[in-house]
Amino acid sequence: MRKLILFAVLLAAQSALAQEKYFYVALDVNKPLSNTSWVNDGTARGVRLGYRAFINRKFSAGLDLSSSAYDQYKPTETMQSGSGAVTTDYFNYIYSYTAVVSGQYYFGNDEKERFFPYAGLGLGANNNRYVMYYNIYEDSESAWGFLARPEAGVLYKFGRRSLGVMASVHYDYSTNQSKKFGYDGFSAIGFNIGLIFLEW
């Protein structure tokens, strides 16, 4: 997965040199919405980066990559089974990676404007690694899923400079499943804030 992400990043950078485009890097804050009894806490340990090239003044398309780590501490509890019981405290972690091909529509894109609100949709893949840590032991499961990500956001361009900022909200739904840890699909809501590097 990591090699794929690295390859996709390099590919995006290579093809970014031909037309009006921007590259962005953003902090990705997320909160899980599914199976919240396993992990409910939101996380700011996420990073997202992407490349988008304009097809015309209203539409862009590109590639978004992101990584998030969700975690939650579970205080000591006793879990009963048929002929026994286990007592421990533990940490539940989800290491989530996504790669989507995305398209955006911009509401007003005059060259003199600085604000560029947009709405978009990303479709791609998601890999989650679910890990339960207890004492020196761990139990884990890794799974892939199809990911859909509707998103709305705004770009702000700093004058004539090739720098700007972005902010967006997004909803992720993935078919990612983990039977071991009770996930029948994985969804999250997220917020991004970051820098954009423009070339237009």
Partner: peptide, 23 residues
Amino acid sequence: FQACQPEPDAKQLIDQLVVATNY
């Protein structure tokens, strides 16, 4: 991206033993 794999605090993990019983 490669570094985004935080893990739990080791001290908190080992501050009590896991206890499993069967009968």
